[in-house]
Write a protein that binds this DNA or RNA. Structure first.
Lengths: 333, 333
DNA sequence: TTCATAAAGGTAAACGTTTACGTAAACATT
DNA sequence: AATGTTTACGTAAACGTTTACCTTTATGAA
C-alpha cells in the first residue's frame, strides 16, 4: 500500500542507509544523491513509519496525559496548553480520562507503558504511591500539574494554594467584609481542599476575625455541590456578607442560589471564586476570582517534561503566581 | 531495562512463539506450559511492547482526533465521549488542536499518518478537500462529528442544524414573541453558520413574521463576538423581545450585555441558546437552549469509527435528535 | 505394526526503520 | 610511488513482536 524506505531506495538507486541519512539529514552523501532521494520520496509520496522508527529509537515522540475529567473547563485549559507546546516540539499527546478511578488510572498507565510513551503528565489529583511506582517502573519522566507530591524526583507546576486562598480572604477583608464564609472542596482533598481551608482560616486569624466553623461548607468542587453548600450557608447564616468559593463553578453556584433567594450580588453579598475559568468572565455579574494561569501551567508542564526528555535530568518544580482578578462580584462596604 | 518476550521465553524454558501464543491466547500449548509462561511474565513484570506489535500487525489501536479548539467546552464534551468509548475498546486517542489553521491541520494529518493511527475523527469544522485527500491517502477510516461533508464515504454524526434553529425560533414564537432577533456564527460558515440562519428565517416566514435583516447579527460563535453583536442589536433595535443565539456562549453574552444595559432577562428580553453546554445551566438566570447531545455524539463517533475498523465497511451517518431545554431565559408574553 | 492425524511447540522470516561497521574511490601528504 | 585520510556510500544487524511453516511426539485406527 504505502511505500517504504526500501521502495525509495530502489527508486533512487541507492541503499536504504543512504535514504535514511538524507531523511534525517546526517552527513555522508553527495548533493546529487540527495536530490535523487528527495525526488524519489516526492514521486512515491513516501511517509516514514514512526512505528518502525520508534522500535529502533526507543522513542515514540508521544506523551501521555492523565486527567480526572477531560471535559471540565479546568482540565481542558491545561490540556490546551500541554498540547500546544508538545506539538511545537513534535510530540503527540494521548489523553486519558481517569474519572478519579484508581483501577482506571492503573489501566491507563499500563496502556501508556505498552505504547511506550516518552513521558507522562499527571494533572490535578493525588498521585497515589501505586501510580508513582507504576511510572517509576516504566522508567519515563513524570511531571505533575495543578497538584504535587511528596516524591522529590517528580516536579510539579502549581499555584501556592494556601497563599492564594489567603489572598482571596484577605482581599475580601480589605474590601471591608467581616462576616466571611467559605465553600471549599472538602477537607479530605489534600491538594486542592485542605490548603485552601488553611489559607482562608489563617487570613481570618491574621486579621483578628473570629473563625466560625459553620461558615465553612463543603461544595465538592462541583456546581451542584456548590449550590447545596450555598443554600445551607445563605439560609442558615444571613449575617455573612462575603463568600470565598474555592472553585469558580462553586462561586457561580453561590451567585445562582443568591439570585434564587433574592440576595443581590454584589450589593448584599460579595463572591470571590478560584481558578479564573472562562466562565468567570461570562458570569453574570462577571466573577471576581483568584486566577490560576491554567493554560500557561499546561504549557510549562509540557515544556518541563520535554526538557527532562532532552536532558535526561530531573527538573525543578515551579510555583506559579496567582492573582486576584477584580470583576464585579465584590463591592466595598 | 524492561524485559522482552525473549526473556520470558528463556525464563519459562519455551520459545518466543509459545509465549506469544499464550499471551494472545491462541491454541497450541499445554496447561502446564501456559502456567510456566504466566509465571515467567509475572516474575519479570513483562509488558508487551505495543510498538513492536504495531509494526507487525499494522494496527496501533490508536485513533487521532482533530478539534478546532480543544479548550472549548464544546470540544471537550465531545472529546470526553470519544475517549470514553475508545478506551472501552482498548483504543488510545491522540488529540490535535488545529486552531482552525489549514497548515496546522495538514501537519497533524501528516503526523497521524506517520504514527500510523488506525482511524481519524474530525470535529466541528469544514472538511477541506485537501484534508479529505490526505486521509484518503493514508487509507484509514474517517468520521465526522458535529460537521458534515459532501463525500458520501465519510459518515458524520450531527444534529439537523437547520431544523434545530427552526425549532428554536418556533419555540420563541410559540411563547408569544413576534420581534425576534438572531445572533449567528457568520454566513460564511457553511456548517454551523448558514443552516441555522436558514432555519431561523424559515421559521419566521412559516409563521408569517416579517424578516428584518437588521435583526440578524454575526457573533462569530464567541462570547466577545456575541457581546458586540448583542450590543449592536439591543441598542439599535429596542423593539426585539427575544433573541436566538446560535451558540450558548453568545447567548450568555446577550444576557451579560442586557444586564449591563438594564434590560431584564427574561422579563423584557427572552434569550434562547444553542448547544446546551454545561455553562447553560450555570448561567444566571439558567439558559433555555436547544441541546445537542455532545457527549453522546462523541461516543457515537467513536463507536462508528471502531465499527468501521472492525468491519472494514463504510458506515452510515447519523442525524441525532436535538431538543429545546426550557430553563429560565424565556418567558411567555 | 503401520500409518494418518492431531497436538505441542520450535525456527525463522517479516514488519520498516536506524546505525555500526566495512569498503572502495578520491584525494592529500610525504 | 606509497601511504594515510576523507568522502560516499553499501551491508547487515538490531529493535520486539507475530505467524507461516516445520518438526517431534503422542494418539488412534486399520
Amino acid at each position: 500500500m504505502s511505500s517504504t524506505i526500501k521502495d525509495v531506495a530502489k527508486q533512487a538507486g541507492v541503499s536504504v542507509a543512504t535514504v535514511s541519512r538524507v531523511l534525517n539529514n546526517l552527513p555522508g552523501y553527495s548533493e546529487e544523491t540527495k536530490r535523487r532521494v528527495e525526488q524519489a520520496v516526492e514521486e512515491l509520496g513516501y511517509q516514514p513509519n514512526a512505528i518502525a522508527r520508534g522500535l529502533v529509537n526507543r522513542r515514540t515522540e508521544t506523551i501521555g496525559v492523565l486527567f480526572p475529567s477531560v471535559s471540565s473547563s479546568f482540565s481542558s485549559e491545561i490540556l490546551h496548553g500541554i498540547e500546544e507546546v508538545a506539538h511545537k516540539h513534535n510530540y503527540s499527546v494521548i489523553v486519558c480520562n481517569t474519572a478519579e478511578d484508581g483501577k482506571r488510572t492503573m489501566k491507563y498507565l499500563q496502556v501508556l507503558r505498552e505504547k511506550r510513551v516518552d513521558g507522562i503528565i499527571y494533572s490535578s489529583g493525588v498521585l497515589e504511591p501505586e501510580y508513582y511506582e507504576a511510572v517509576q517502573a516504566m522508567g519515563v519522566p513524570l511531571v505533575l500539574v495543578a497538584t504535587k507530591s511528596d516524591w522529590d524526583d517528580v516536579p510539579f507546576i502549581k499555584v501556592d494554594d494556601r497563599q492564594a486562598a489567603y489572598d482571596a480572604a484577605a482581599y475580601l477583608i480589605s474590601q471591608g467584609h467581616r462576616e466571611i464564609a467559605m465553600i471549599g472542596g472538602g477537607e479530605s482533598d489534600s491538594i486542592a481542599g485542605q490548603p485552601r481551608y488553611e489559607g482562608f482560616r489563617q487570613a481570618l486569624r491574621d486579621h483578628g476575625l473570629p473563625l466560625r466553623e459553620d461558615h465553612v461548607q463543603d461544595g465538592g468542587f462541583t456546581f451542584e455541590g456548590g449550590c447545596g453548600a450555598a443554600e445551607r450557608l445563605l439560609t442558615a447564616s444571613p449575617e455573612v456578607t462575603a463568600v470565598f468559593a474555592a472553585g469558580d463553578e462553586m462561586a457561580i453556584a453561590v451567585i445562582s442560589v443568591a439570585a434564587r433567594l433574592g440576595i443581590a450580588v454584589p450589593d448584599q453579598l460579595a463572591v470571590i471564586g478560584y481558578d479564573n475559568l472562562k466562565l468567570a468572565e461570562m458570569s453574570n455579574p462577571p466573577l471576581t476570582t483568584v486566577a490560576q494561569p491554567l493554560h500557561e501551567m499546561g504549557r510549562m508542564a509540557s515544556e518541563k517534561l520535554i526538557e527532562m526528555l532532552a536532558t535526561g535530568q530531573p527538573a525543578a518544580s515551579e510555583v506559579v503566581p496567582h492573582r486576584v482578578i477584580e470583576r464585579q462580584t465584590v463591592k466595598k462596604r
